[in-house]
Amino acid sequence: MKTFEYARPSTVAEAVALLEQHGPDAELLAGGTDLVIEMRNAWKVPKVVIDLKRIDELRPAIRENGQWISISSTTVMTDIAEDARIQKYFPALVESAVVVGSVQIRARATLAGNICNGSPAADTAPPLLIYRAVVAIAGPAGRHKIPIDDFIVGPGKVALGRGELVTGIELPIPRQPIGAAYTRLTRRRGTDLASITLCCSVEEGGVARIAYGSVGPRAVLVEDSSGVLADPGAPDERKSEILDEVFADASPSLRSMRASPDYRRAMLRVLGARALQTAIDRFGDAS
């Protein structure tokens, strides 16, 4: 690994200043589970590495204010999975957090990092889309928030400008009952990168939402307000037609060695139907 300058700011403002100063020569270090590999392989050769873990404001913390749960950008998967409030309000996010890598990885990898990396296969992206997460950003021009759907752009790309960093991810606490489920497709049961990531929800008014990733440049969110998908009694053929539309935009990589495009497309349907059923069951339990 090439050497670099290591910075350990203690405030967000300091971090923003460093980022603004060094631009593309700087890399942010939170969990480092991707960055260290990228630096070792010289895929990234930053001049400055900015470690966010000593910023008091970002200290691993999950906060609740009655309407929102906010998860700071240095919060790791283990913290998310173990948090009773997240378990209660956002179980599908927990389901996605507990399958990111191994115990060792989850003790290190952050939720914000999972999203900021821009990996199409990020496990937490579909549930964050489903739960209408908002990304809190700090930058030279101050602070703002944008919906996760606008934040995720494409492979390796997120909506961050020069000098900007994510300070946290915020989730609105659902006011109505919601049933949600996360599932994924892997090559083995043990730790693996997913060939499909998929999250479904069923909400009041017969709205079903499906978010899925790893089958195109970014995770996408599709809403079905016809009531068919959310209806436990709807005939399979009708659901099938709608699921065809839901997954119509999937464009799995032709070059992937993890799964063929045909298999991924077919598994979207299988996993989609299964996750939907789980979501329906959970909605029934919740309401």
Partner: peptide
């Protein structure tokens, strides 16, 4: 084990 949690030491900088 770092502060009570198992971690991969290959993915951490020593300064951390």
């Amino acid at each position: 084990i770092v502060d009570g949690r198992p971690m991969n030491s290959c993915l951490m900088l020593a300064v951390e």
